[in-house]
Amino acid sequence: MSMFKLETKNANLWYGEKQALKNISIGIEPNTVTAFIGPSGCGKSTLLRCFNRMNELIENTKIEGEFLMDDTDIYDMDVYELRKRVGMVFQKPNPFPKSIFDNVAYGLRIIGEKNRNAIKDKVELSLKNAALWDEVNGILNKPALSLSGGQQQRLCIARTLAIEPSVVLMDEPASSLDPISTSKIEDLIYKLKQKFTIVIVTHNMQQAARVSNKTAFFYLGELIEFDNTEKMFTDPQNQRTQNYVTGRFG
């Protein structure tokens, strides 16, 4: 039994001719927050999307190496099953054009939950877990798109939590939000790691430092350095990492 929740061994990925991931081996521990940082195009989002096989939606993607979750090969699993266990929050809030309630209930309904009370309870619990309940209690039938950007993003998190994944992938979840909404999301991430394993891609160095236990630095498709967040930001071993975290490039 490996100590890792998610693990890749010698992972390579090509978009057509272009190699986006080069020989990446990384292990992500359960109930931690792991931050992926690096300049645009370094492969961090690509790697994130390997864990729930979202990269398969892009044509001409070729993949090599091992991707494991709980020691099971992700690419041998049923993709729909996998995505229920590995939830994802996207860069831009993307609530469905439905009511707040129906957004959170969506995942439950697609897995065939018919019991109205069970759905209702689950929606409430998920909204509470996403720290949105107090703001939307009583207006659950309103369109999700009437919420503010920050609320929409927390709604998307609630929607993901409702299907009880064990891993939550976050692709720059706060990059389109104002500082107050961002700090709410960060508080939420901090709280969620008790129950979930979280991997977050971010361009914001302070954010990585604030929310994560471990940080991985990517550059041009390679994993340059991976260590405890504190060490990465105070005493990085690689010159490139140091330049990046101190803001000298990227």
């Binding site: 729930n52 979202m54 939606l57 729909y80 099953e81 996998l82 995505r83 229920k84 939830g87 994802m88 996207f90 831009k92 993307n94 609530p95 469905f96 054009p97 969506y106 995942g107 697609i110 897995i111 998307c156 929607r159 993901t160 299907i163």
Partner: peptide, 14 residues
């Protein structure tokens, strides 16, 4: 927008 499709696929929808 594709973001809606991604959101749905991301939750395990077919």
């Amino acid at each position: 927008p594709d973001s809606l499709r991604e959101g749905s696929y991301g939750m395990g929808a077919t």
